[in-house]
Design a binder for these strands. Structure first.
Lengths: 360, 360
DNA sequence: CTGAAAGCGCTTACAG
DNA sequence: CTGAAAGCGCTTACAG
């Protein structure tokens, strides 16, 4: 230990303090820290000891100013209170902070003003890269993020017609698998509880539903496609709609475009005396924590949230450091069907002939 | 619009570019932006026009280096994937970003290495203030945050024996209110499902439970205090423990130290045929979103999460800018009891004499 | 009211 | 292998 150690010192030590104590120039201190192998061992030892004794840590603002980098990444999330994104953020944070990057979390929360503020911030060079989890390229009234010469990577919600890297699951294929599970159980009357029509995830999941039915030789019945918007509330409404149906015409299974809606629907039909899975099998999508707590526990598609975040962050780091993207523009991560208690073969056996007679 | 606008320019405009275009010195540009009232109107007009035409935005690193501030606040959260903190973070983010501060989210996630890295970062002057949501003052093997001459504010989880500002709900009073609600319904045999003993929140909620019973003249029965650790799993275990009890000795109501445990317990006793609230009333604590979806919906204490975050952030801003804290060191925000479907008067009427005979 | 100049703490060619 | 020096983009006394 030197005379006065850094711990209780009033002001933080700067590089000049270290240089003085070690008896070298500031350039040598800087070099020792950045590329230890270029200085001779004796110098290195002296410098490192001085660093320790002074408690020196570099001033990031000064370094960033000098090298013209910010070492921060902005990540745009639609809603930070949504647990889904919280876990994706964890994967991002792990990867980015291990590489020395800081994180600015831009919580869009449906506010165009906030979004515009963040766009301006990025255009002003306040971030070295941007991670888009919000399903669109951020905009402001007078600036376009694509002109900001800053690396972009999107994750979770695919953004069509763009050519930066994107990391998502394969929504079409995964939705297809979910519906195939219902078909395999013997269901032939399978409803779909949709998300908002304009949403890309909704469009892909609906497509997967269609494909699975087609493969099974089941005609798509438009009356079995229930409107929803990803909220618990529309799940409840869809449940009520199901209850008004003549029991003979009621589907024996339902695939919901997300878990919240599935859970709202189950709760509603339960309260009316319908049993899940005996009277109705339900599959959700996302794998939120609650899907494992609800009654019955929900069969659903579990997205690799952490990995989605980590992979996107790694892709962005590549882009920021090398200036070029990895080989694949669109990385699709596997999501898996988690079988739980909300699905079961239909009680009355296949009602297929009935459905075909009724539909289109 | 000037000849070439900033939008598609290669490099971001700097203050010298603005000065040249406006025909003034850089000092004047800086002044106009910082304190518009000190320059004469004509100058101000010219400068502002030049700012607009160049698309100028100040380089934050340079400014921070110069004024020796970082304009970032570090917020330490125990677990970013926990929806409770996600919403507190929203309140923090709103307040801080409106004041021009950036946010570094330190996701401690039970990792002492990460925590130490963040402590070093703060000691190196990389943040102007710290918001502690983690229930303890962050530590690293060789540095103490309290010596880092950086403003500290804690929120949500009270940290005893410290003298920086703290913002929490009144856990004792609120728990007392929850139990009083059960007492008012006529319950006299009221169990408590606890959190981990070492946790300060647990200690306070237990104290509130005790006070409410005492006020009602009900003796505390140690056998009705079930161990838990805030997880859904221990709620399930407590439910099983309840089921092994002789029905006559079974409590008619239960207060759980948090919602996850309450929900796990309800699910377990339901599966065994016990009805909530008819056979058992349950009150939770926290007001997580799921408490409003589960079956039955859960009567619980709703914490003002957003407000907790916003208030703590405002307190920290005061501390960072004026150097002194507000009047009150410990700010207690009101939490409210949300009545839902999991509580009801006991089926068999007050069993008070029985309880007294049995306990203490 | 405005300008010239110093300086915040670093990194990095450029010499030697 | 090491040092002297320039410069990253700002802000702010200090003069005038």
């Amino acid at each position: 230990m030197a005379k006065r150690t850094g711990v209780t010192r009033q002001k933080a030590a700067k590089i000049a303090d270290v240089a003085r104590l070690a008896g070298v120039s500031v350039a040598t201190v800087s070099r020792t820290l950045a590329r230890p192998e270029v200085v001779i061992e004796e110098t290195r030892t002296r410098v490192l000891a001085a660093v320790r004794d002074t408690g020196y840590m570099p001033n990031i603002s000064a370094r960033n100013l000098r090298v013209r980098k910010t070492m921060v990444v902005l990540v745009a999330v639609p809603d930070i209170a949504n647990p889904f994104f919280a876990e994706v953020l964890q994967g991002i944070d792990d990867t980015l902070s291990a590489a020395g990057y800081g994180l600015i979390i831009a919580n869009l929360a449906g506010s165009p003003e906030k979004e515009a503020r963040y766009v301006d911030l990025i255009c002003a060079g306040q971030a070295d890269g941007v991670l888009l989890l919000c399903g669109h390229v951020m905009r402001s009234p007078d600036r376009d993020l694509r002109d900001a010469r800053v690396p972009l990577v999107a994750a979770c919600e695919y953004i069509p017609y763009e050519n930066f890297p994107q990391v998502t699951i394969d929504n079409v294929e995964t939705a297809r698998e979910a519906v195939r599970h219902l078909v395999d159980l013997g269901h032939t009357s399978i409803a779909y509880l949709s998300g908002p029509n304009s949403n890309i995830l909704e469009q892909q999941r609906l497509e997967g539903y269609r494909q699975a039915l087609r493969e099974a030789g089941i005609a798509v019945d438009a009356s079995l496609i229930l409107p929803g918007d990803f909220t618990f509330r529309t799940g409840v409404e869809a449940g009520r709609a199901l209850l008004t149906l003549d029991p003979a015409a009621r589907p024996t299974a339902l695939f919901a475009a997300n878990d919240e809606m599935a859970i709202g629907l189950i709760k509603t039909v339960h309260a009316a005396g319908l049993h899940v899975p005996d009277d109705l099998s339900v599959v959700g999508f996302d794998g939120i924590a609650y899907a494992d707590y609800c009654e019955p526990t929900l069969t659903t598609i579990v997205q690799p949230r952490r990995d989605l975040g980590a992979t996107a962050a790694a892709e962005l780091i590549t882009l920021m450091t090398t200036g070029k993207a990895g080989l694949r523009k669109h990385i699709k991560l596997p999501a898996k069907l988690m079988l739980r208690d909300s699905t079961r073969p239909p009680r009355k056996g296949p009602g297929r002939s009935f459905r075909i007679a009724r539909s289109g």
